[in-house]
Design a protein around this nucleic acid. Sequence first.
DNA 1: AGGATGTCTGGACATTTGTCCAGACTACTC
DNA 2: GAGTAGTCTGGACAAATGTCCAGACATCCT
Lengths: 206, 206
Amino acid sequence: MAIRPETHRTRGLARRAALLDAAGEIVGERGIAAATHRAIAARAGVPPSTTSYFFESIDELLATAMRERLDEHVQALRALTATIESAELTPDPQTIDGFADATAVLVMSGPRAHTIAQFEVYMQASRDSKYSNYAEEMFDAFEALAAAGLKAAGAAEPATGARAIVALVDGLMLQHLARGTTERRAKSEIRAALAVAFHSYLEVSQ
Amino acid sequence: MAIRPETHRTRGLARRAALLDAAGEIVGERGIAAATHRAIAARAGVPPSTTSYFFESIDELLATAMRERLDEHVQALRALTATIESAELTPDPQTIDGFADATAVLVMSGPRAHTIAQFEVYMQASRDSKYSNYAEEMFDAFEALAAAGLKAAGAAEPATGARAIVALVDGLMLQHLARGTTERRAKSEIRAALAVAFHSYLEVSQ
DNA sequence: AGGATGTCTGGACATTTGTCCAGACTACTC
DNA sequence: GAGTAGTCTGGACAAATGTCCAGACATCCT
């Protein structure tokens, strides 16, 4: 009761975090099928039984890992959204290009495995409704960013085009991953497509 | 030598096809991890050892199943592309809307599991370069369709926007799958987004 | 220092998995 | 109808997997 096993808990949480990181990396690199208890433990550098100690089951471990990874992404999206919204931007081509660039940089940041794991969440969501909430949160956060960008750029109805812009970026990222193109090229493609799309939607909604 | 086991081979091929269908369905419904020898065989209604008889390994079975499913899609895409190209369309709003509609119908046809399996191919491609060719073929066929549509609608440089349109549609489909929206809604969203995008790219490239 | 308490792990277990093959079976030729 | 060649399958095997737990371990209070 009065015990504060500070060191214990600290190390425990560190191991738990290591397991979650390892799980995310394995899912990204070799798929969900390869994310076994032993593989995850080996990657995290802990004994196999550690996984059972910290998580009810392998499913809970994976769900938690996905959740954490997703939270990071959502947080980054919301941070950029807040920046866009707080800055009083003037609707001009420069603003649009700047936003397109910032978005491209954000979605292409982070290791490749993380990005793949993110799409793996979408696949899980398509089968298991438990994951749908995860995916929806992600989409909504991204959509809010797109809407903020549209609004800052002077669009009359930001909501209309936001979903399409999210789809456009996700689609380009999926193509990048599946085709194996360089990150450099993917980033510039996303930036260009976003710029075009923003200009277009601007014209349409004005 | 002179033997023509016609009936044998016929039934054999039917079973092989049943296995491939079953594999595709299971991948779509429950993911690659659930696509085991026994699960596939049970679904196809054949003894478990049949899988080993017809395929070198489980990987070859899955790769073949993905390949077949993908070929169907590519064929459908090319058929529509040929139709668009052969018809001498006049570049007007009606043409664009008609093309948007035809594309939306095409990509949303087929059972949900097939669509998910198609995205699973993209995920595999992101990890295994062997699958990259599959994904690329798919993307290229779709891109050709989009380019044909742009060209028919009077776009000056069809190639420029085609890739973005493919990304847009794939992204919308992914959102549809992950969010669990109705097919009706997804189809209308795809149609609307395509119409807007085509009009936009039209203006941009002219 | 010593006991108490929560933290961790080696090893084991039942299941499930991929793979194989000896032999049963079927269709065909003569 | 008997023989034969190709087709198929039940059953078995090793390996891998998820899960569990008795006990070792570390940390803390008194």
